[in-house]
Design a protein around this nucleic acid. Structure first.
Lengths: 198, 198
DNA sequence: TAAATTTTCAGACAGAATGTTCACTAACTC
DNA sequence: GAGTTAGTGAACATTCTGTCTGAAAATTTA
């Protein structure tokens, strides 16, 4: 028995209503009533699907994360040797496709809970990757992989946020991900045009 | 006429109560009643000082920012030529002194509003600094200063958050700020132990 | 110290949003 | 077409909000 068409429809409508409203008015300013109204659904129906506003937002964010993981999976497996920009680029593309949702999550709406989910997940995966890579290539990291992962994730989310907040993209996904990679590889002196010190 | 001692006392009590409660239960879970109770103040008194919960949090965060700016001021003026780690170190020290407040802000409590204030302010100052420095030294940035500022702020806040979330600091302020600086200067290949590619 | 000013207090109030329940109707699956 | 499941709308108690009292307490000022 496949999922009932009605539940699919109302869930979808509620998800969309949430994202739209949060984008317009901010998470704190909207009520369950508002969401139900925009979705054209009775308020009681909302509660038969989600415990509360938070529950809805959390699930929407979790689904986005699943979607992202799914898109990244084939790319991370492939390049276990060196750093390539492929996963980074794919994330920017994903953000382009689902810009509204990325926006509100990266803004820290919902008391930052969805953003924390996103970040923590990201840090975990990155840290793992860094450690694996160091071991595989027999190199000794000069900095703790955990710290390195935080920094890398921090950079990426900062730029991602900046990028999605523009109504019209300030540069294509390819360009911004290339810049980010160059910066990570060469460091800030390189990027700012200064000659590197001793 | 100096400020009435009573207002100083109750404001202080309300500020502390807010920070403590948010740390324990999260911003969304606490009510004005809770804050007033912990501060041992009538609820009506709360409203004679602040418009609502948000207003209180916003002002507390703004005061922290002022405090930080005050501590940073002498350090940024002095080193207009090269990059030194002094302002970074000072920020970590400030975070150490006011750890609880830093924690809740960096967690994105209060729908991320205080965090956005923090970040935006930081980005603005950093961007300005970058531009000034490039001009002063007659170098041509390879990346837009704005983007560079975002990245730098993203790195710093990510590490800062990681650092304050430990009950006992994982490393002293001096060490973490030095690491961060090394990383920014030399880039990720250097940090991870890989030989830099062409 | 006394008078004048300001702040705090406790309680009451209407309004808004929450989360639950229920009997009924509509839509869907098989 | 029969049987099952989901959505409806209305009602309900509860909680929190923000505002407003008049009286009591603490403070500043003279």
């Amino acid at each position: 028995m496949a999922e009932d068409r009605r539940t699919r429809r109302t869930r979808r409508a509620l998800n969309d209503a949430l994202v739209g409203l949060v984008l317009e008015r901010g998470y704190a300013a909207i009520t369950v009533e508002d969401i139900a109204e925009r979705a054209d659904v009775a308020r009681a129906t909302f509660y038969s699907h989600y415990r509360d506003k938070d529950d809805l937002f959390t699930r929407v964010a979790a689904e986005l994360l699943d979607e992202l993981r799914e898109r990244l999976k084939p790319l991370v497996a492939e390049n276990a040797v060196g750093f390539t920009g492929k996963p980074v680029l794919e994330m920017f593309r994903h953000a382009q496709d689902r810009r509204d949702l990325y926006r509100i999550i990266l803004r820290g709406e919902g008391d930052g809970k969805p953003l924390r989910m996103f970040t923590e997940d990201f840090v975990r995966a990155t840290g793992l990757e860094f450690r694996k890579r160091a071991e595989l290539n027999g190199v000794e990291p000069r900095l703790a992989p955990d710290l390195l992962a935080r920094v890398w994730v921090g950079e990426q989310t900062a730029v991602l946020q900046w990028w999605v907040e523009h109504d019209t993209p300030p540069m294509p996904a390819e360009e911004v991900s290339r810049m980010l990679l160059d910066l990570a590889v060469h460091g800030r002196y390189w990027a700012s045009g200064f000659p590197a010190p001793a």
